[in-house]
Computed example of a mutant assay.
Amino acid sequence: MTGTATGRGVRIAVIDSGVNPDHAHIEASRLAAGAGIRGDGSVELGAEATLDRLGHGTAVMAAIQEKAPGATCIPIRVFHDSLRTTGLGLIAALDWAIAQRVDVINLSLGSTTPAHAPAFGAAIERANRAATIVVAPREVDGAPCYPGAIDGVIGVGIDWDCPRAAFRVAEDQRHFLASGYPRPIPGVPPRRNLYGISFATAQLSGFAACALENLPSAGPARITALRTALYANAR
């Protein structure tokens, strides 16, 4: 993004495997209390409920904080023993995030099962009514990914040639492209680190938070204003 925006005042819910607040790439002072959501939709609160034991959520959070260091991030843990959850769990996580009145929901995951689309569509409508913006993968391995493929979501794809400090507009002008690499770890080659659509999504969430810093905080036109700002800053 251009200018000096850092995402100050913007609240980002990060639905993933939680966060390790002691990791060197995490600024713990910019974290707020989150929740753990089980596959049956049940909610667990407290620091233990959001503690990352898989590493994925921490890497996603680090990519977001790198781009939007002034934002407040709220971990929502849906991955517990593996990087798998249920559609019910994801819907419950989205609704919990919306209830916290967050500005952005980073969902570095989704479902390629078309039968899940209606339930995700209803959740996105609830988010839009609350002026909460969902950022999610538009497709996975060429298949539409829900909710990222639904209108009303900021959909994201990968551009491996895109610098990590930038993002681009896709040819269809309907979604955005970003690098699939996370924050680098000294001495570790990029392809030996975590990488993929999760991190393109996280980086776009960070860029979106910076854009939202100077946009109206409410109203149905918020997502349109954000898209306009992102188009203007893509390169």
Rank of each mutant, 00 (worst) to 15 (best):
L230G: 09
D172N: 15
E213D: 08
G152Q: 00
H116I: 04
L54R: 03
R222D: 08
G87M: 04
V102F: 01
R126I: 08
A166W: 03
A202F: 04
I98Y: 08
A143W: 07
T112D: 08
I37M: 01
R191V: 11
V153Q: 01
T58H: 01
R168A: 13
L94Y: 11
H175K: 01
S17T: 03
A225V: 02
V43C: 04
D103N: 15
A208M: 09
Y231C: 01
A115H: 02
L212N: 05
A209I: 03
A24N: 03
G196K: 10
G3T: 10
L109C: 10
G187P: 10
G39N: 08
A119P: 12
R101D: 15
H23T: 06
V140I: 09
S198G: 14
A33M: 07
G36T: 04
I91V: 15
R222K: 09
S82W: 07
S217P: 04
S29D: 12
E48K: 12
R77N: 06
L177M: 13
L230W: 02
L51G: 00
F176Y: 15
P137K: 00
P144Q: 11
I124V: 15
A99N: 09
L109T: 14
A170L: 03
L88R: 15
S42L: 05
I105P: 11
I98D: 06
P144I: 01
R174V: 11
G180H: 04
G41F: 00
